[in-house]
Design a binder for these strands. Structure first.
Length: 270
DNA sequence: CCCAAGTCCTGGTAGC
DNA sequence: TGCTACCAGGACTTGG
């Protein structure tokens, strides 16, 4: 389920259970997800106390008082379950706190990952080394986006999905932001004018912030034993709405780019 | 059969 | 021809 807003709200949910808490039990239930789970993960985390949780792009970061940091990614279908009633085939990592709270990383497709690094070297973790700025952070603005897109012949949609350009966007929010900014997804990334990039930056920030707010409001559901942290799909302007009306009155179209659906409105996105 | 929110890797091509 | 950069597309997996 995860693009940046979903990971942000997931981390917030985990924080309420884990921050400042000692880990009584850490139990991988299989050897790998997308890649192997470190064999010493159980040993290094068991008995440690969680000192902080944070997020980088679509990755969640959990730091302990032993100087370790667990880094997880939810892939396409991953989620954390809190106090699940029962453990199923797709519950791949269990974490129990000393207070008796149980967390389970559940991921049917196993495109997610779990890794462990030294906290003081977290920024050297390979997925992070060439990653672009946080879209909600101070290093993302029209100037820097223009510099990152300069000379790029690829489409703006593909460019925004490239985590080296800006980190944390996925298919849904790229479609939404391009619609909000009135930019056609097929437009060459390097040929978008300055004024439109200003609108695009604002649209990206706006759509992510709204999704985080909506996600935060569903945390109660998320904390339910079988609850899910959903995308706020009722608020999507174009994603998953082929044939329906765009806010501008046009009709939402769908096309396939690189095997992925792109939802857009030809009337207002140029 | 179709479709699905993730990243990584490969192979083709353009340009120097 | 060889090297590099860039880019498009496929692979991975399970379930609805």
């Amino acid at each position: 389920m995860p693009e940046l807003p979903e990971v942000e709200t997931t981390v917030a949910g985990l924080r309420s259970v884990l921050e400042g808490r000692a880990l009584l039990r850490v139990e991988p239930r299989r050897a790998d997800l997308r890649f192997p789970i470190p064999v010493d993960l159980r040993q290094r985390l068991t008995g440690a106390t969680v000192t902080g949780l944070s997020r980088r792009a679509k990755y969640g970061l959990i730091e302990t008082d032993r100087g370790d940091m667990m880094i997880f990614h939810l892939g396409m279908s991953g989620r954390w379950r809190i106090d699940p009633a029962e453990i199923g085939a797709h519950d791949h990592l269990l974490i129990e706190t000393r207070e008796g709270r149980l967390l389970s990383l559940n991921d049917p497709r196993r495109f997610g990952s779990v890794d462990l690094v030294r906290a003081d070297a977290w920024s050297q973790y390979s997925p992070f080394t060439r990653m672009g700025p946080e879209p909600l952070g101070p290093d993302f603005d029209a100037d820097r986006l223009a510099a990152a897109l300069a000379g790029k012949a690829t489409s703006i949609k593909a460019a925004l999905l490239d985590q080296r350009i800006v980190a944390g966007l996925g298919n849904i929010y790229v479609c939404e932001a391009l619609n909000m900014a009135g930019i056609a997804p097929t437009r060459a990334a390097g040929k978008i004018g300055r004024a439109r990039l200003v609108l695009l930056v604002e649209a990206i920030r706006s759509v992510l912030t709204a999704a985080i707010t909506a996600g935060g409001s569903t945390l109660r559901d998320y904390a339910r034993p079988d609850g899910e942290l959903g995308y706020f799909s009722k608020q999507w302007r174009v994603y998953g709405r082929e044939g329906e009306s765009c806010p501008c009155g046009g009709v939402v179209r769908r096309r396939i780019d690189g095997g992925r659906s792109t939802f857009y409105c030809a009337k207002c996105q140029k």
